[in-house]
């Protein structure tokens, strides 16, 4: 009897030790969120440990948003995805059945804890006098932007340009197409992701203007210094809504569903919103947004739903194989 009790106690101890081991999460994200999530991860792990007494180790994976979605489809075991646009998570739901189709309704603001927009990063002194979208299609202006086929940020940039031209030309779709065609003729090189484009512009010294996530532009400004680059905010741009979601199937398999959900909910907390704002992501919380209002210049923002009928339609028309982008952009030109 004593041996039996000892055995049970030993087994319980082993189980307790196993149970006490750190919970591991993998956050598969898009290119420019490295800094944001390294801070979020540290803050969340601290909070989770304080509340539950359990360590959480969160790994990050970054790359072009579309490419990251394909990796998850191919088996990259993401507990959560924090991608650049909803379409890339839709793909995981539709093709991979990794989470339900209504995933966007599970968290506030269509599962978008922060927003951003597309701005311009130019060289010090703005030698090409770039102030708005029209300046990007002028001859001799070299525009740096990643490939919209692989980068979520680039898709937002493309649609921002298209939306600007639509609004300027009273909804004339043909003129919008001509405008974007001209713009991409000024693009000398296409990187696969936003971080690569920043490298092309800032480190390799290529191009006059970088179409950039607002947060990425300010990060570059802080890193490179105001003596090298300037941020130009156009008169209007697109409201970029990068969403987040728990990958249900993977999280269930790993036994991390609860912690994954809490991790994403943390992004909506005051602490999470402050971290987002500090990293130049526009917070959803009105209070935090007001607190950091000076960080975010005012501009007219249009939504993808308003001008393009949502991501599904925009993706199909512009970015699917054989879509508008494939027709207007020829590599090497």
């Amino acid at each position: 009897m004593q041996i039996r009790n000892l055995t049970i106690a030993a087994l319980a101890s082993v189980l307790a030790l196993i149970a006490a081991g750190p919970v591991k999460l993998l956050n598969v994200s898009y290119d420019p969120t490295r800094e944001l999530y390294s801070q979020v991860n540290a803050a969340f792990a601290k909070q989770w440990k304080a509340k539950n007494g359990v360590d959480v180790q969160i790994s990050q994976s970054h790359g072009g948003s579309g490419k990251q979605a394909r990796s998850v489809l191919d088996g990259l075991p993401a507990d959560v995805v924090t991608l650049a646009l909803a379409y890339d998570i839709d793909v995981l739901a539709e093709k991979g059945h990794l989470l339900p189709a209504n995933w966007q309704t599970r968290l506030p603001n269509n599962s978008t804890p922060y927003t951003s927009t597309i701005v311009f990063l130019v060289r010090k002194g703005n030698p090409k006098h770039i102030k708005d979208w029209d300046d990007l299609v002028k001859p001799g202006v070299a525009v740096i932007t990643p490939n919209p086929k692989s980068s979520g940020g680039a898709r937002w940039s493309y649609l921002a340009a298209w939306g600007y031209a639509l609004k300027k030309n009273n909804g004339d779709d043909g003129k919008a197409k001509d405008f974007v065609t001209k713009l991409y003729k000024n693009v000398p090189v296409l990187d696969s992701g936003a971080r690569g484009s920043t490298t092309t512009f800032a480190q390799r010294g290529i191009g006059d203007v970088l179409l950039s996530w607002e947060n990425e532009a300010y990060l570059a400004l802080n890193e490179l210094g105001t003596n090298k680059v300037e941020v130009v905010t156009p008169t209007m741009s697109i409201l970029a809504e990068p969403p987040v979601a728990v990958v249900d199937k993977v999280a269930a398999k790993h036994g991390t569903a609860a912690v994954a959900k809490a991790y994403l909910e943390f992004l909506y907390s005051d602490e999470g919103q402050e971290i987002a704002a500090k990293n130049y992501y526009r917070p959803q919380s009105p209070q935090i947004a007001a607190k950091y209002a000076d960080r975010f210049p005012k501009l007219t923002l249009f939504t993808i739903a308003e001008l393009f009928g949502g991501w599904q339609k925009a993706q199909k028309r512009h970015f699917d194989d054989g879509g508008v982008f494939d027709k207007i952009y020829t590599p090497g030109t």
Binding site: A142, P188, V189, D191, S192, G196, T200, R204, I206, G207
Partner: peptide, 17 residues
């Protein structure tokens, strides 16, 4: 110089690819 840089960057991207 820009052309050279673009060419070098394209080579770099190709290598990464």
């Amino acid at each position: 110089e820009q052309l050279l840089r673009v060419s070098a960057r394209k080579t770099e991207l190709k290598e990464e690819e």
